[in-house]
Design a binder for these strands. Sequence first.
DNA 1: GCTGATACTATACAACCGTTCAGCAAGGAT
DNA 2: ATCCTTGCTGAACGGTTGTATAGTATCAGC
Lengths: 199, 199
Amino acid sequence: MAEAPRKKARLPAGDRRALLEDAARACMARGGIREFTVDRIVAEAGVSRGLITHHFGSMDGLLVAVYARMYREWMEVIEAPRPGLSRIEAIIEALVSPELFDRDVLNIWLTLWGEISNNPVLREAHRQLYGDYRATIAAALREAAQANGRELDADTVASAFICLVDGFGVQRCVEPALLTEADARAACRAFLGPHVGPF
Amino acid sequence: MAEAPRKKARLPAGDRRALLEDAARACMARGGIREFTVDRIVAEAGVSRGLITHHFGSMDGLLVAVYARMYREWMEVIEAPRPGLSRIEAIIEALVSPELFDRDVLNIWLTLWGEISNNPVLREAHRQLYGDYRATIAAALREAAQANGRELDADTVASAFICLVDGFGVQRCVEPALLTEADARAACRAFLGPHVGPF
DNA sequence: GCTGATACTATACAACCGTTCAGCAAGGAT
DNA sequence: ATCCTTGCTGAACGGTTGTATAGTATCAGC
C-alpha cells in the first residue's frame, strides 16, 4: 500500500515559492493583472492566504519574482542552440516556437509590460534584465552582418527588432487570428534581411 | 463684474460624458488599469460618484467609450492630409508626431490592449474598429506599391507593420529612453521600403 | 526531550472596489 | 402654479483588496 498522502507536508522553501509563481502566472495568463490577487493565486496554488507574504513579502515581491522567471525562461529558449541554424536564425525560430509564441505566455508579458510602465518596483527590476536581452540580439545581428561583410548599427536595429517582436505579442493577444507563426517568421526575416544580408 | 460661477450648473449630456472620458484617460495615463477606478476618476473629474453609472451604465461602458474615443482621435491624426507627402509618408509622420508618439497616449493604449486581451466586452468593441485601421494602412501600402509598379500582399504587410508600431508603443512605455522619434521613423521606412519600393 | 528556527495556516483589519438607489435641483410643458 | 423629465448627487451595500499578526506544525541541533 502506498504512503498515505500527508497533509501539509513540509517542502523545501524553493518548491513552495515556485508553486506560487506558477499559480500567479496561471492567473495572469487567464485574466491579466485583475486576476493577480491574493485570493485567486492562493486558490490556484491550494495554499493558505498568508503564504505569499511569507515568501515574497508583498504582492510586488511576487510580481518581481514572476517577471524574473518569465525572463529567465524566455532567454533559455532564445539562447538554446539549434543545430544547423545560424544564431540569428535560431533566435527567430525560438521566437515563433510553441514555447514563446504562445497566447498564455504572451498575455503574461503584455500584463507585465503594463505593470512595468506604471509600477516603479517592477520597472527597476526590468531595467536590470532588459539590457541583457537587447545585447544578446545585437550580438547575433553583428555576427550575421560580419559573415556578410556588412556594417550595421546593431544596437539600433536590435531595438527596432525587439519592438517588432513585442508587437507580435500584442497582436497575438488582442487579435489572435490575424498573425500566424509563419507570418511572424516571414516578417522577422524580411525585417532583418536588408540590415544584415542573407542568413 | 463677471457672472458668479453657478455650482452644479446643468450641462448638455455630451459634455459631462466627455469630461468623464477625459478624466478616465488621465487616470489611465498616470497609472494604467489600477487607476481606472470609480473613486479616482470622479475625483479627477470633480463630480459625484454616481455619475459614471448614470452616463455609462457600468465601468465597462466607460472603458468602451474611452477606447472608442482613443481610436477616433488616433485615426483623425493618421488620416489628416499632410501637403507634400504621399499617404504612406503622411501615416509614418503621424505615427511619430507629438500627438501619437506620446508616453501618455501610448500608456493608455498599452492599458487598453491588456484589457482587450482579457475583457470580452472590450474585445468585442475592438474587433469592430480594428479592421478599419488595418484597411487604412493596407490601402496606403497598395497605393505606394502601385506607384512603383510593384505587387504586394498589402494585408499581411499592413498587419506586420502594425505590429512594429504597437511594439514602439510598448517600448516607449517600458523603456522610454531607448527609442526616439527619429529611430521610429527610420525603422518604419526601413521596414516598408523593401515591400513597396521608394516613397 | 528540550530549544529555537523555519514553514505555514488562519483570522482580523482597514481600505477600497463597483453598483444600487432614494432623493434633490432645474428647466420645459401645460 | 403644477407637473414630468432629465441631470446629477451622495450615502449605503456587500464583496474584495493587500497586509499584519497570532498561533500551529515540523524539523535540526544538542
